[in-house]
Amino acid sequence: MTAMLIPLLVPLVGAQQVAFWILAPVMVLAALGVVFSRKAVHSALSLALVMVSLAVQYAALDAPFLFVAQIVVYTGAILMLFLFVVMLVGVDVSDSIIETIKHHWIASVLGALGLVILLIAGVGRAIIGSSAGLAGATSAAGGNVPALAERIFTRWVFPFEATSALLITAALAAMVLAHGENLFPKVRQKEALQQRMRDFVSDGAHLGPLPSSGVFARTNSISAPALLPDGSVADSSVSKTLLARGAIVDAGELKAPTHAVYAEIQQAAAEAEEALS
């Protein structure tokens, strides 16, 4: 009954059209968001939305493998790496417009031209040529996934392997470029411990851990310095980072309220004694 009702309510519209007309505006808005967002992370998120919507389109068009591969590969892995870069490099870094490789732009233009030609050829062939239809293309192999596997691993196996070789080369190149030799030998836990022992023997340097920050009546913040028995500040209790930021609270300021109260008490005691005598 309901199966009959749905075509009546939505005449001549299938799930694919519904999915397209809902997702297409979302995708266009998200694509605009990629370009116009002020923060790089927001751009990356908009890109993720475009990718996921595209994946749902694939699902609506009965391409389940492409749907999942789109999410796992693009939305999952690649965009995650992109987010990493954005988050770690920071959003304030401005792009350099100086050409690091000479005549770099010629190669870019050629690459872009090649991509446009490929796209025109691919899309044009899909529009002009006659298509076998989804069932015609996949039923021989016994389903969507086996049909794709058969294509990739028989007819297109060399382009497929060449692509993976290209990717591996790129990954290796990135590793070689990013690799740096150690200038100094790496200090591990054992060496650090031995160094501390040697310092103790030669200079009498403190062997134990650094002292913690100070605990006062009104604060135990990490920015409060600890005091030595003679009342002076223990320098090693103060974080160097906080010191550089100027965030260290003055010990005298911290002690002042206590001193004031003590003075008051002593004064009151003296007055009381005077009154008694």
Binding site: V41, F65, V68, I71, V72, T75, G76, A77, M80, L83
Partner: peptide, 25 residues
Amino acid sequence: DLPVAVLFILASASIGIYGIVLAGW
């Protein structure tokens, strides 16, 4: 059920990790 159901589970796990990374940022 999908012909690629197990991959679908992996895919939704990779969406879920977005929430964690974005929370961190």
